[in-house]
């Protein structure tokens, strides 16, 4: 492997985000509330895994390695995804709220990234943006239907909201590496997206009859490889087969 550059590190971060969330969503396949939702979940998971693959492949060209090496041979401490993406799928309320938070963020993010001065990233962003717009339509709709459905669904949605609330801060944090890349016109300033994101969330919560959690908290660390205890287990399962037969092709 070649020494990582700022750009390859950045691309890897975005790849890890897509990888771990795609893996989580795929856990709904054959486990969803009905066949229609099952198909939709597989669809979204496929979009994320496809995105992960494009980004890993791009990072791999810079690092002189392969997409699978990056996905399957790095440990949890080397994964740099934002924490919200890796959390266990929970109940349907938890997955829905997480998805809506991330979809809302991703639309804003990739709307900007299509203008990246890095042509390859801009092209990946353009493809991703189309998918995100479709995803957010679906997750927002689910937010409203489940938030304003039955008493039970309302309670579950509010609980999920409370449990995810503190993870959102990480979405909007710019570190030195990303700041440097922003100055080169490659990356996006995350802080700038917060206001629009808040507005989108507030608007949806009102329609879904849900309320902003009363207590706020902040957990961060994904970019530094300090993860929840869940990520290691997820990667054990995901990487075990690949690692058991080194050097072969599948």
């Amino acid at each position: 492997m070649t020494e990582p550059s700022n750009l390859s590190t950045y691309v890897l971060r975005l790849a890890d985000d897509a990888m771990v969330l795609g893996q989580r969503i795929s856990e709904w396949t054959s486990n969803s509330p009905n066949l229609e939702e099952d198909i939709a979940n597989s669809n979204v998971a496929l979009d994320y895994l496809g995105r992960a693959r494009m980004l890993y492949a791009y990072a791999a060209t810079m690092l002189n390695t392969t997409e699978d090496e990056l996905a399957f041979m790095r440990d949890a401490r080397q994964y740099t995804n934002l924490l919200m993406h890796e959390l266990p799928k929970g109940d349907y309320a938890f997955s829905t709220v997480r998805q809506f938070f991330i979809d809302s963020f991703d639309v804003l993010y990739f709307e900007q990234l299509v203008n990246s001065s890095d042509a390859q990233l801009a092209a990946i962003a353009a493809k991703t943006l189309k998918e995100c717009r479709y995803h957010v339509r679906r997750s927002r709709d689910l937010m409203v239907r489940l938030g304003d459905g039955t008493e039970e669904s309302h309670t579950r949605m509010q609980t999920a909201l409370n449990e995810l609330w503190g993870y959102r801060h990480e979405l909007f944090m710019d570190d030195e590496l990303e700041t440097e890349l922003q100055q080169q016109g490659i990356a996006i300033t995350r802080t700038d997206l917060q206001q629009a994101w808040d507005a989108a969330i507030n608007d949806c919560l009102a329609e879904a009859t849900l309320s902003i959690p009363e207590t706020d908290w902040t957990v961060t660390g994904g970019r530094a490889g300090v993860h929840s205890e869940h990520l290691g287990h997820m990667l054990d399962d995901m990487q075990c087969l690949h690692r058991s037969y080194p050097g072969v092709t599948w």
Binding site: S26, I39, L46, R53, H242
Partner: peptide, 29 residues
């Protein structure tokens, strides 16, 4: 087959398998 989605040995195989299993849900529907 769904049993192997989480641990498919490459990204390509994971994606192909997941879309296959998704098709089966569509057939059921």
């Amino acid at each position: 087959e769904g049993n192997w989605i989480s641990s498919a040995p490459s990204l390509y195989r994971k994606i192909v398998l997941l879309s296959k299993v998704q098709d089966e849900a569509g057939h059921g529907l």
